[in-house]
Amino acid sequence: MIEAHHLSKVYDRGLYALRDLSLTVEHGEFVFLTGPSGAGKSTLLRLLLRQELASEGELVVDGEHLSDLTASQVQAYRRSIGFIFQDFKLIPRKTVLENVAFVPRVLSASATQQRRKTFQVLKWVGLQHRMNAYPVELSGGEQQRVAIARALVNDPMLVLADEPTGNLDPDLSLEIMNLLREINARGTTVLVATHDRELIRRVGRRAITLDHGQIVEVMDGDRGDGVVVRPVTAV
């Protein structure tokens, strides 16, 4: 699904956010990206969202070379990706229903499809009873569940999450992770950037640790709860 070959991202004054990074994420895999602040996790997600272009190297998602995409191809590519952010990025003046239905609506789905898909995902994240609430009336966990519903409403092949539990307490964090695991169980590839190593340990999935823009460790996790994560050396 994702292939990065000798990927580098250099900002002004020669600051490397990513340096000669190579990794592969298979279809249907659940992978954590971890590391301290400034390690390059968010930069990699921005490259994957095609918000930025790599300075060197190649990034291929589902066979698409991201650096070769035209503006309209970028739009089409993004329609196949769901994204979840730490600050939820919900539209305050829209209700839960409108926030989620907004995506199929701007992607020109029919009104019936919009209603059906929106209701399905809201039911799936357990928020069908709060459809008419505004974001400000929801708890942090509920807001993140709305963001997850919005990411899923378009049936993405890949879900990217940048610190999705950064604003949540440990119980709510695990609840959100369980939702992401369920998404993954349905065949969607999930890539989660987090610095919460305890959460990674509890969820137990492959975790790639970055530091100063390079991979410093790859841990292969079992697919059960509470497993011990063991370090490996190869990507």
Binding site: Q51, V74, R78, K89, V103, V106, L107, S108
Partner: peptide, 16 residues
């Protein structure tokens, strides 16, 4: 701008 950012990220067509 928040709404526009989301539209950009979901790949909304230019007309929208």
């Amino acid at each position: 701008r928040g709404e526009l950012e989301i539209m950009r990220l979901v790949g909304a067509p230019l007309a929208y």
